[in-house]
Write a protein that binds this DNA or RNA. Structure first.
Lengths: 250, 250
DNA sequence: TCGGTTGGCTGCAAGTTTGTGACAAAACAT
DNA sequence: ATGTTTTGTCACAAACTTGCAGCCAACCGA
């Protein structure tokens, strides 16, 4: 009881999206979570899911995704969702298969619950995940208008990069995303996988590592003062790349 | 196979702490996670756990906590740990009791795994949680972590070694790993085998002891002030090497 | 002091990793 | 549809890493 109230206060306004084709199940899960104090939206399939995510006034803070959906599989949806968002995902499945769970977790789900599930545990897992994700400032970077580094300035809204001399340098989409990935995590070695994950363009899982190298190469050509010895994006042999200069928001 | 390698790169440097009283189980979990590419420390009980958390040179990025411990219960430890840290916690229990799981999750654990668990799923859950926590800035995990010794400073995230004079010294992968092994166990004689164990990023099992000597030699050349008489890494004839200066975290 | 053992270090070759031009597929704009 | 831009992949050279052999120095016990 006390827990109920405390938790409710802990996750105020949290908005959940349930993606589940079976009406009965959908209603059950929705009721369960509403009773736990969450705001709940539902979707029947991938199309509706993306509709809610892209068009809703308040995008969901967490997605509960059924694996068995008509048409596209929940795994595919999970992958596609991850490609465009870091929203926490709990997968739900009738199959208790372990391989299934591992695959789910590896393609980006945060938790995996098998049906039939115990209501209280399910809610507890939703809360645990929300607690972990909502305490983070989240897209602190996204709130900033522009990011400054080494005299350069990246306008996030306009997607416009200005050189120290004040010249506007055009960046392609992938270049912009890659640079942003670096700016979000400066002074930290980022593996090619991490870069791909953060620079979520439409990169599917099967894109090769070398694509990152090429993009880094192209980006360097635009922002490195001295082409022969990179001072901004350094290579860490065997591990990945690191963005050296400090980044400030403004 | 590919997943293994990719995932390994995804969480470079991650340091896990296993709290488990049963020796066999502890060894099993530790081996499992080491094989998955993590750095692993272990603790037998709450006292040891807090010792590692507060005194270890590199604090853990994630804690695996057994519920059944002698003395204080794992739940209490979890609560006490949460009171002072936001480190991600995975609870481990022999009891598959649902109430148990709910309690665990509600008092602050991030995930809850019942024994016996499927190894791959367990590792997948560890990774899923690390993925969620290590990327987001703001957490203790994301803070720049550097180790100081004899005026030198090693930035773990950027993999950057700075000399007392402020010059950045490049380290190869093996050199970095070797140095880290020393920094984590200063003032302790480390055998060549132990050093190889830690710096085994690419070292096969059959590499000769002398390889360590050579790496030590190369490392010395970079950090020893006086080449003729090593003051930082001393040789202990017949046993191995010792890292002499005190190491502090900052 | 002397022989045997252990460790330090150099040169090197093999293996790995990375940078980048070229090309083709894909996406995009007109 | 058509031309332009973007982007992933390939290929290959260049750069880097690293284990090892081997020689020499330091060390140790008798």
């Amino acid at each position: 009881m006390i827990q109920e109230r405390d938790q409710r206060l802990l996750d105020p306004e949290a908005h959940l999206l349930i993606v589940e084709d079976d009406g009965e199940m959908r209603a059950l899960v929705a009721r369960l979570l509403r009773e736990a104090g969450f705001r709940v939206s539902t979707a029947r399939d991938g199309r509706e899911m993306f509709e809610v995510i892209n068009d809703a006034i308040t995008p969901p803070d967490l997605v509960v995704l059924d694996v068995m959906l008509p048409g596209v599989s929940g795994f595919d949806l999970c992958r596609r969702l991850r490609a465009q968002s870091q929203v926490p995902i709990i997968m739900l499945t009738a199959r208790a298969d372990e391989t299934d769970r591992v695959v789910g977790l590896e393609i980006g789900a945060d938790d995996y619950v098998a049906k039939p599930f115990a209501p209280r545990e399910f809610v507890a897992r939703v809360r645990a995940l929300l607690r972990r994700t909502m305490m983070d400032p989240g897209d602190s970077v996204a709130k900033a208008r522009r990011l400054i580094f080494a005299g350069w300035s990246l306008d996030l809204k306009a997607r416009e990069l200005t050189s120290p001399a004040g010249v506007i340098v055009d960046l392609s989409g992938a270049e912009h995303d890659l640079l942003l990935a670096f700016l979000e995590h400066p002074q930290r070695v980022l593996s090619r996988e991490q870069l791909m994950e953060v620079a979520k363009r439409r990169m599917s899982v099967d894109t090769s590592d070398r694509a990152v190298d090429v993009q880094v190469s192209r980006l360097r050509r635009k922002i490195e003062p001295d082409e022969t010895s990179p001072a901004i994006i350094k290579t860490v042999r065997g591990s990945g790349y690191v963005f050296v200069p400090p980044v400030t928001r403004e």
